[in-house]
Design a protein around this nucleic acid. Sequence first.
DNA 1: CGGGCTAGCTGCGAG
DNA 2: CTCGCAGTTAGCCCG
Lengths: 254, 254
Amino acid sequence: MDSLETKRIVDEAISKSKLVIVIGKCRVQYSGRAASKLSEGDRMLVIKHDGTFLVHQSTKMRAINYQGPGASVGTRFSSEGLVIYAERKTPVKEVIECAFKEITFAQSFTLEDDEKLKLFGSERELSDLLMDDLQLIEKGLTPLKQESKLWKGKIDILAKDFRGRYVVIELKRRTAGLDAVTQLTRYVEEVGKRMDKQTRGILVAPGITQNALKMIEKGGLEYFKLDYEIHNPRAEIKGLQKKQKELSEYCEEE
Amino acid sequence: MDSLETKRIVDEAISKSKLVIVIGKCRVQYSGRAASKLSEGDRMLVIKHDGTFLVHQSTKMRAINYQGPGASVGTRFSSEGLVIYAERKTPVKEVIECAFKEITFAQSFTLEDDEKLKLFGSERELSDLLMDDLQLIEKGLTPLKQESKLWKGKIDILAKDFRGRYVVIELKRRTAGLDAVTQLTRYVEEVGKRMDKQTRGILVAPGITQNALKMIEKGGLEYFKLDYEIHNPRAEIKGLQKKQKELSEYCEEE
DNA sequence: CGGGCTAGCTGCGAG
DNA sequence: CTCGCAGTTAGCCCG
């Protein structure tokens, strides 16, 4: 396909806010938050009307090189042929350039689409379900606040147990790892200092890694296995299995 | 465009391991790790030969619905028209279905591309630079091990200072937040327990959030501002500014 | 395979 | 803008 014709197609697509696809052999260069070079090969370039600039290889989900929404796209000719580029100034100056040696295909399209994705089984949905019935986790547990903000971060659910102790609940929609435990630790530490040394912390997740569980136990925290099913169009909590460590010591244990 | 013809194009693309693009008005359903519904609208569907299945809307970088590499793709006719789907069994059963009401465009392409991206300015590259000259951070600092594996995770750089104290270094290529500090805390805690209570922890990053800095200070840790530039084709450390808190107490301070 | 972690993460939402 | 965090995170690497 002709470079000049391709340039016309891309320029027109940009001015008319259309989506444009260019397929061909190209080299890619990027410079900004990081920098990269990609030698010649066949790729699919997609440019959206919001400035999104995606260079896809023949495999993988993610674009190998890209520019996010807000970029300004342009075309020019170099000694090598047609160069399509996208530039962004904020938060840092970034440039991506795609130099086409051969062009297989180029066409623009109008996409009308106002629909938003309805997603089920998100952490927020599970959190709402738990807020409605914390008893599922433990009898006597009453919700205080969802998304409670501390300076050390944001607590998923803050509650009080039957004895009046604060309970920090960290919820994960999938297997929890060390990061989840450190998060919980951080919150429990702050609530404990600000409110009450007796503050408890419960990690609620469908699974947990070995090391994370070990850390939970050493840290005097608790883990609750949460089984849920996504019925579509909504999630539902199936059953809850306790695995509670006897509240004992927050004091260091070797 | 004709549905039957589109089906033929997609089926042929799958069997011949080609990339195929379908553009048109469609509804999308997904079920697996989560579930979702997307009402009718114009979208671009991209299917790669490795099973990657991407449904793109007219804006944003990320596909609104997708299936990763390894999915098996197929087509069928329903009462509504052509349905293109992708299925995966591991790690959990997942299905995505795209039901086309109208088809604007459908075509397959062969993409030959063996090139890998060369990326500069990655955390690993910065880590290597630091290992070569830890003196930049502090005189008398000598490297012990990179990517040292602990029980509680993986330390970026483990070193010893001029007094023989262990120093855990956590490196971030961009502004560090609370998560980076908790990570560091986790490592310092383990090294401190296993090796030496005097273990220090240094967070090295080009920036740090207010709360993260507060947490660094309260936790008796240190922060070093790392200025680097990516010259392409490699990163280079520009200057290093110390902001060291006098090593004082690991004991709790209110 | 799981486990831990980076990512040019992206995207969202609150301040 | 910044900050904190979820994500069908994806992708990598190492046991």
